[in-house]
């Protein structure tokens, strides 16, 4: 600072570097813990506000049922958001998947397993369509998925209106073996474990993060960008299909509002969990899962508090802002967009 050169021995340099590394590791650990802080804050605040009712046996089952769909979709969405993509078609494609499954079930000609498999293929096709628009037609993914969403919503409304005036129901009692806490818990654990393994320990997840970090660098490093982008969307489609199946049997029917709003809820979950919307190395699947759980517990808890309908969403929004303000990654500083 005063213009004098400071000379250090190599040992001193090594010591300084060790201290800097230690500080960086400490900071990294704190950064990794921060997303959990939001979740803990919500749980503690709502436990106090509901007088412990949040964790009553009855309500725990409710939390599982209510968060199931969003957690499954969030697991799939991690693969897409990790490479900087997004998909607004999830809601409409979920509704269409449910319609296909119900139509096949009601026809009595198709075995249940075949109907479910066909249903899963619908959101896979839709998500891959979004990927193709972005990769091959060069349409920005935000607008491309919005356009495809319009098409799918129109198709869903049309088929629902033509077939059953907007509502197709199945017998609730016949499929209770699927809409069952034990089955859901098993499926949830299986999807989370499979997703976590694929995302954190295989090339699929790692390449997605590299692509999200810098697409050009990834391409020049030999990563087949198109392949891994499409794989990400395929996983999202599969997860949306699975979520659609369970949503259908929980509601025992499909209407043209089935799945509506899922895309915005998904974005809220991803953001609340601290998952970077532009993807990259800091993407962690656990953040997406945490975000989904936080949103669902928040919704459930605020309803349990018996707050006025006029303010419940306002409080949800305020809590969202507080949690995001506390837990979101600020490493980009002023360059955040």
């Amino acid at each position: 600072m005063d213009g004098k050169q400071v000379s250090r021995t190599s040992e001193e340099n090594v010591q300084i570097q060790k201290q800097l590394d230690k500080k960086a590791r400490q900071k990294e650990r704190i950064m990794n813990l921060i997303p959990y802080a939001g979740f803990v804050f919500v749980v503690v605040a709502l436990t106090i506000a509901t007088g412990g009712n949040l964790f009553s046996a009855n309500n725990l089952a409710n939390i599982l049922n209510q968060s199931f769909v969003m957690i499954i979709v969030a697991v799939g969405a991690s693969f897409v958001y990790a490479h900087g993509g997004m998909d607004f078609t999830v809601g409409a494609s979920m509704g269409l998947a449910e319609f296909v499954i119900v139509t096949m079930i009601l026809s009595d000609k198709v075995p249940l397993a075949a109907a479910l498999l066909t249903g899963v293929l619908v959101p896979v096709a839709s998500s891959v369509g979004v990927a193709c628009c972005a990769l091959y037609l060069k349409i920005p993914v935000f607008v491309g998925s919005l356009g495809l969403r319009m098409v799918l919503m129109g198709v869903l409304n049309m088929v629902m209106t033509n077939s059953a005036n907007g509502q197709l129901n199945i017998s609730y009692n016949d499929y209770r073996f699927i809409d069952n806490v034990a089955v859901k818990l098993l499926v949830l654990v299986a999807v989370i474990v499979a997703g976590y393994y694929l995302f954190e320990y295989t090339g699929i997840g790692k390449k997605a993060k590299i692509i999200g970090g810098n697409r050009t660098v990834a391409r020049e490093s030999g990563v087949n960008v198109s392949k891994y982008v499409i794989w990400g969307y395929v996983f999202l489609g599969v997860c949306v299909g699975i979520a659609g199946i369970f949503s259908l049997f929980r509601a025992a029917g499909v209407s043209n509002t089935s799945g509506s709003g899922t895309e915005f809820n998904l974005m809220t979950c991803i953001a609340l969990g601290g998952f970077p919307l532009k993807g990259g190395q800091r993407s962690r699947i656990i953040n997406a899962i945490l975000g989904a759980m936080t949103v669902c517990i928040l919704s459930n808890g605020l309803l349990l508090c018996n707050l006025d309908a006029n303010i419940i969403n306002g409080i949800k929004g305020l809590l969202f802002i507080v949690i995001v303000g506390l837990s979101y990654d600020r490493s980009s500083g002023k360059l955040v967009s």
Binding site: A271, L277, I311, N313, G314, G317, L318, I321, V324, G325
Partner: peptide, 27 residues
């Protein structure tokens, strides 16, 4: 102001503020 203070992406902040701004006139 919140955007500058919190340094979170605009998309994220706007999602939360949407819920708040929808609730304010209802009160």
């Amino acid at each position: 102001g919140l955007y500058n203070a919190f340094r979170v992406p605009c998309v994220v902040l706007s999602l939360g503020l949407t819920m708040v701004y929808e609730a304010v006139p209802r009160i």
